[in-house]
Amino acid sequence: MILAGGQSVIPALNMRLNEPAVLVDINKVPGLGVIEEKGGVLRIGALCRHEQVRKSVDVSAHAPLLTKALAHVAHPAIRNRGTFGGSLCNADAAAELPACVLALGATLNVESAEGSRAIAAEDFFFGFFETALEEGEVLASIDLPVLGATGRHFFDEAARRRGDYALAGLAAAARVEGGRMIAPRFAFISCGDRPLLAGALGELVATRYPDAPAEDEIAEALARDLEPPEDAVTSSAARMRIATVLAARAIREFQQNGGRA
């Protein structure tokens, strides 16, 4: 098993939830901790720490969605160790970064002894803590399209306490060009067994632009898109309600910013 930041692996070992025969520490592998922008693509190395990404000026300029989202990921001491790639490979449906890369339409660059392949974020998250990674594959970097003048990013979530996993959250991205909203992508956190891209909502919002759908229409679309889990403290309906409110907020922000551009 690969050991990156260890902020998910080591708790699991300490709690005896996992007993890997071998741990392979990749922390000293050179070249995996770099952030760079080239020709409209922002590349984030898999070993970049959460705090490094949160404080990066390249990231806040080209992918402000991540800067915002990372403030909600755990606490500073955990963000100092935890890695961008580790969070994606861990594929927790309640984690912020998987939803962000889904909203941004990222490409995940994977390496193995056999060679390399690129996996679209849509094809990476399979289910409950499950990804498309095969035995022997390592995530090396993540490529994101830069925001650009017509781009819109949104991130927000509801959590019980600062740094807790979200009850529900939303990462969204779109472009507003020539009076049209293009490819709005709404990715929801804690609303299924993996981060979910809300296709019905995206279509509704794009068709209606520059008008905004009413809240009950948003809720109707989300009922088709999401399957929020239920636990001892939070009902599925409560998560659905939070998701609806967040979606309405994102749509409003996209419209206001779109009007100004």
Binding site: G6, Q7, I10, P11, N14, E51, P76, A77, I78, N80, R81
Partner: peptide, 8 residues
């Protein structure tokens, strides 16, 4: 940098 001693 501050880190968790139990997670390293």
């Amino acid at each position: 940098r501050a880190v968790r001693g139990c997670l390293m």
